[in-house]
Design a protein around this nucleic acid. Structure first.
Length: 730
DNA sequence: GTGGCGTCC
DNA sequence: CAGAGGGACGCCACT
């Protein structure tokens, strides 16, 4: 059950007056929909009427900041094609108004004309919170709410727990809001001296379960995946999560760094929320939420649900006004939420003994290297400290400084050590030590510590609103940067295992970003090189060097590969030269030949840059949008960086869209099977555990759905590997 | 909290 | 002329 959109309501009633009259007659119900449709309240006479008719008082957002109130009103009318009212307003003119809006208009001069006033600084006015927040501690009070929850057009909910790790969290209370300003908190496990009697967790979850599990009741959360996971560990399988204010903000403008509720409330509602630290303290002095007194807890928890609802009312209409963004939100991001939740809950089985064995081996070798390094330097020092390393290498040993850090210091990174490795024995020792130290601290030891004692698995968190391009990210632990390049690192993957009778299956897209570049650019040469199904880099080398593919040398192939990848990142001839360890002239020559053979690629990149400068954003194939504020920067380096990002984002972002679509298709297919689970996503790869007897069927089904996730001008090729562990599956 | 470094796609 | 490779997460040292 979705609320009607503004356009539908206005179409139905014809005039704003008629709509308001209808709202008056029916009262809250229409008011609810109206609020969803028109969350902003321009200070015009017409909309003051709405304000009176609805309890909502959302602060002005970007629309009002960058335009006068009357202009904002006009834009709303235009957006909803509300002709009669528009004419009326035009007759009265749309003179700019004074005050904060005027300042914002001035601010707009920097970027507004290029559409970058899409969002702006926090609005000056707050809505008049708090609303009516009810504390529920009796069965009667809870029962009185149940029908309201069922009948809500959108049910906002939130859980309060004992941990930010959903796999370990215990629920201490649940809150919900059904209309702005009307929210409730149901504590179930607050325990402190003098704590009032509360309903039990079992009784409350038992009463709410039919509602949470009813897919026809549209639910809303802020970062709902967390609450879905928490409720899942409590035996409640949440369905029907149709909205998530965090993802609405992310799709609306992914460039905004933070999409947490406090930031969003400030930004879009002009409202300062109660901070968690204010009620529970922070650091060593913090107390569990269950020890927060019920009055304070109610103000905090009910506000969470209330603000979530208000954010949705502010953000969702803005998405509705952008059909392509709305599609990304409704058809990609929201369907992905329960899928990611499931992957996180399932986790990946880890062979912890294997990790321990590897850790010991690494430690042994590190001690040897340490001794050798001390002897080589003539004294002991901390090999993990770049600062001490710098003193030993460049001050004491007097080795030449070939590479500097961005702050101008002599660098001790891999490139720097390689550059002086022939002049002294120490750099080699350091290089090997560094590699091993990295493997042990970041992978073998850390991964082992992340294994959940209850499940024997690692349960990563996939962050859905972090990467500006639309990619997912993974944390705690990060499963998207497990080593693969070197054999000793790659062995870490031997610890990612399947249970007895099951296999690990890894399915990855072959050169997906290159294929997207071919598709978006339409370059005939590149399309041909990718359409033939052969070795793309070899084919590129053949084109660039003008010789048959079979005569291409290893060096020529790797040069072509470096160009193929480098171009997608906006690399220059200088960068290519460094990458391939050749001189700049040669690198320029390669790139010139590349562009001569693939002129469509050059044109596409140039077109992307100019479109980005014109609009202030770039888009993926599916309409996901990335704003690039720094395109307008006066700082040349920043501007150049933004241009590279502008060229890269459509490819990286389209790849992200495609694999997300694939995940949705695959998840729908495997939903009714009990012989396969999707475990991991690593940008162009999906990893499953598959029962042995189902391997062939699943291989076929997964390839079909991943390949079919987009129709490009070149085929989407998927490679599949199967093995006892992730290492073998590649 | 920042800088340096290193892992992945 | 200067600067020169996109997007992440996380470890360690150091302030």
């Amino acid at each position: 059950m979705r609320p009607k959109t503004a356009a539908k309501w206005l179409a139905e009633y014809g005039t704003l007056e008629a709509l308001i009259a209808a709202a008056d007659k029916i009262g809250g119900k229409i008011g609810e929909n109206l609020r969803t449709a028109l969350p902003r309240l321009p200070l015009s006479k017409d909309l003051v009427t709405i304000r009176i008719n609805t309890p909502l008082e959302v602060g002005p957002t970007d629309l009002h900041q960058r335009q006068s109130d009357n202009e904002a009103l006009l834009e709303l009318y235009r957006r909803y094609d509300f002709k009669a009212a528009l004419k009326e307003l035009e007759a009265g003119g749309a003179a700019p108004t004074a005050g904060s809006a005027g300042e914002a208009v001035a601010d707009r001069g920097q970027s507004g004309e290029r559409g970058q006033s899409h969002y702006s600084d926090p609005p000056p006015e707050a809505f008049s919170a708090p609303g009516e927040y009810e504390l529920i501690t009796t069965r009667e009070a809870l029962d009185a709410w149940l029908p309201r929850l069922r009948e809500a057009s959108v049910l906002a909910f939130d859980t309060e727990t004992t941990s930010i790790d959903p796999m370990r969290a215990q629920i201490v209370g649940v809150s919900f809001a059904v209309e702005a300003g009307k929210a409730a908190y149901v504590p179930v496990a607050h325990d402190y001296p003098g704590a009032p009697t509360q309903l039990s967790r079992d009784e409350v979850l038992g009463a709410l379960k039919p509602i949470f599990e009813d897919a026809s009741i549209a639910k809303l959360g802020q970062h709902a995946k967390y609450d879905i996971n928490v409720l899942s560990t409590h035996g409640v399988n949440v369905r029907g999560v149709a909205f998530d204010s965090m993802l609405e903000s992310y799709v609306f403008n992914a460039t905004t760094t933070r999409h947490d509720m406090d930031s969003l409330a400030t930004r879009y509602l002009g409202y300062t929320t109660i901070k968690y630290e204010e009620v529970a303290g922070k650091g060593a002095k913090s107390i569990p939420f269950g020890q927060v007194d019920l009055d304070t807890a109610t103000r905090y928890a009910a506000e969470d649900a209330d603000v979530t609802l208000r954010l949705h009312q502010a953000l969702y209409p803005q998405l509705q006004a952008e059909p392509r963004l709305l599609k990304v939100y409704e058809e990609i991001e929201m369907p992905l939420v329960p899928i990611l939740a499931k992957m996180e809950q399932r986790g990946v089985l880890i062979d912890i003994d294997e990790l321990r064995r590897q850790s010991q081996q690494l430690g042994k070798r590190m001690v040897e290297l340490q001794k050798q390094a001390y002897a080589s330097a003539g004294h002991e020092f901390n090999m993990d400290s770049p600062k001490q390393l710098q003193a030993v290498l460049f001050d004491e040993l007097g080795l030449p400084v070939r590479v500097k850090t961005p702050t101008g210091q002599p660098s001790t990174n891999e490139e720097a050590l390689e550059a002086i490795a022939d002049a002294h024995e120490l750099p080699r020792k350091l290089l090997e030590y560094r590699g091993l130290a990295k493997l042990r601290s970041t992978y073998t030891d850390k991964l082992a510590s992340n294994v959940n004692e209850r499940t024997g698995r690692v349960h990563t968190s996939y962050h859905q609103a972090v990467a500006a391009t639309g990619r997912l990210s993974s944390a705690d632990p990060n499963l998207q940067n497990i080593p693969i390049r070197t054999e000793e690192g790659r062995r870490i993957r031997q610890a990612f295992i399947a249970p007895p009778g099951w296999k690990i299956m890894a399915a990855d897209y072959s050169q997906i970003e290159l294929r997207i570049m071919a598709h978006l650019s339409g370059d005939e040469g590149l399309l041909r090189a990718l359409g033939n199904g052969g070795d793309v880099h070899r084919a590129t080398a053949a084109e660039v060097f003008g010789i048959p593919p079979e005569e291409i040398t290893a060096n020529q192939r790797s040069a072509a590969k470096a160009i193929n990848f480098g171009l997608m990142y906006g690399m220059s001839a200088f960068g290519l030269a460094r990458q391939l360890n050749i001189d700049r002239g040669e690198a320029s020559d390669y790139m010139a030949r590349y562009f001569a053979r693939y002129p469509g690629v050059r044109d596409f990149m140039e077109a992307t840059r100019s479109q980005a400068h014109r609009d202030g954003y770039v888009e993926t194939l599916f309409g996901r949008r990335l704003y690039l504020e720094e395109l307008a920067s006066r700082n040349q380096a920043r501007r150049a960086g933004a241009e590279r990002a502008a060229v890269n984002a459509p490819m990286q972002g389209t790849a992200a869209d495609i694999i997300k679509r694939a995940m949705i298709a695959v998840a729908a297919w495997i939903e009714t099977r009990d012989d396969v689970h999707m475990l991991m996503q690593v940008h162009d790869e999906l990893v499953f555990e598959v029962r042995e007897d189902a391997v062939e069927a699943v291989r076929e089904g997964v390839i079909e759905r991943m390949s079919g996730a987009a129709e490009l001008a070149v085929p989407l090729i998927v490679d599949v590997g199967v093995g006892a562990n992730w290492h073998e599956a590649h």
